[in-house]
Design a protein around this nucleic acid. Structure first.
Lengths: 129, 129
DNA sequence: TTGACACGACTACATCTGTAATCTAACTTG
DNA sequence: CAAGTTAGATTACAGATGTAGTCGTGTCAA
């Protein structure tokens, strides 16, 4: 299981649309992104190329163009990025991060409910592993 | 209230020791860091300079050297960094981030307990604002 | 007083990032 | 077949980052 390469902020944007649905041609990706962001399609192409070079994306040739897909599941990147974040900002301690999130982020009633039941479950697991 | 400048991973390292205790001279910061990390003291000096230029640190002259201190409280940076993280990795939705953390990070029994009571409190607040 | 240090200032330099433009080969259309 | 359109490949270029080294000057020890 290869470790995911580090990807930049702009690159996340691109990866996100491919995790949402792939494979897709460069143009499809560019169209979708350029609708939301104020980016030039060329910029998206550049990022696709870089992501392939980094090993974050793979592609298959189809006619005269490439169809891109993520090389690794999103979860792998999410996890790496989360750990790096917790390391940098909270000295590696997840609990303070959680506390900060619950205190400062916008959470709906349902969010809180879901969280609470997940914690309940976790605690049960811990009791009798 | 000025927005905190963006600081890089290496820069966080430096800021963290100054948030922990300040003001401190460049050498004190460097010593502490070089004990933990495999960095050259010069590297720490460079980062101190950059952080001053960015407005993340301030300094006061004392004899022939500078004493550095954070220009803004840690919380401001933590918040900015957290929001940027949630934006990038979870499309701006805090709840999935929380879920991911609870599921994948190492949390002690006490951590879970604390979280749970914080959520309880939040829910009460929401009921009667 | 003179030479060795210690400090901050300035300089260095390869990579990575954001943001594109240009080049080239294939494909499409008159 | 020739010219325009596309797609990917290559090149550009400034600012951020990681990681130091060099310069000039003030200071302390002898």
């Amino acid at each position: 299981m290869p470790k995911p390469p580090r990807i930049s902020e702009a690159e996340w944007e691109v990866m996100n649309v491919l995790w949402e649905s792939s494979p897709r041609a460069a143009n499809e990706v560019a169209d979708e992104i350029c609708q939301r962001m104020r980016w030039h399609p060329k910029t998206v192409k550049t990022l696709l190329g870089r992501l392939v070079r980094k090993g974050a994306l793979r592609y298959r040739e189809e006619g005269n163009r490439y169809l891109y897909s993520p090389a690794l599941p999103r979860g792998r990147f999410v996890d790496a990025e989360s750990r790096s974040f917790v390391e940098r900002v909270f000295g590696g301690h997840a609990a303070p991060a959680l506390v900060h999130f619950v205190e400062t982020m916008d959470l709906s009633d349902d969010d809180l409910q879901e969280l609470r039941s997940m914690i309940d479950r976790k605690q049960k697991e811990d009791e009798r592993p």
